[in-house]
Design a protein around this nucleic acid. Structure first.
Lengths: 109, 109
DNA sequence: ATTTTATATTGCAATATTACGATAAAGATA
DNA sequence: TATCTTTATCGTAATATTGCAATATAAAAT
């Protein structure tokens, strides 16, 4: 064994975990921080900024793209990655909702 | 190769990723949801509620404990795990801050 | 003291992730 | 067209995660 038993969990639990997984690597945190600060992003910058090889950066970008956090467009010869703001805010709300649902009366000692 | 290059990232980026990693499994989401809904939690309940074996639940609980999200105390014969509310709110703020820092002017198309 | 009950640890197999060199693909430029 | 630049994909090695059976530990109950 070794595969996650995703089928025994709810859709919400799985998609929450999937979103968290994308944030579960410092390179992807760094990439998202960087892109969200920029007007536009040329991927080659990232290789220098982050300090990982070009294939590795490409893979991380792909993970981020998979959950819809990026939208890309071409601008001259360079691919421009941008934050998908709708999705970004959607995730913000998901995380916020998750953290908000806590029973204040749990285990009073 | 294969190990994450944590040393090339900032403390903030690494701890953000570490927190996300704990949330990056549906079982741990389910466990946290369940505990935060309860007045108190007997671990044996979790095995039934979640549907994973006792050792696996124990391991997941340990991951959650490692980032300080749980505090435990003994109540009669049963170990009682509770959400550590200070840490919980701390993480909520971290995630919220992360999602709040976005440049609204990125890549207008 | 022995048994029962609850939780933790160990060991291992299956799977997933991380990283990068090599290479391919696609567009820009000479 | 040939070449350069940029990004993606492939192949592979190292490492990490997931899950559980078996076992150990610890406390409570008998």
């Amino acid at each position: 064994m070794g595969a996650s038993k995703t089928h025994i969990f709810s859709l919400g639990q799985n998609s929450m975990a999937q979103a968290a997984k994308v944030l579960a690597h410092p390179a992807r945190i760094a990439i998202l921080e960087y892109i969200s600060r920029q007007e536009n992003c040329i991927c080659n910058d990232l290789v220098d900024v982050i300090g990982l090889s070009q294939p590795t950066i490409s893979q991380h970008l792909n993970e981020i793209k998979k959950i819809g956090l990026l939208k890309g467009t071409f601008e001259g010869k360079n691919l421009c990655y941008c934050i998908n703001q709708e999705r970004w805010e959607e995730l913000q709300q998901s995380f916020n909702a998750f953290f908000s649902n806590i029973n204040q009366n749990c285990c009073q000692i």
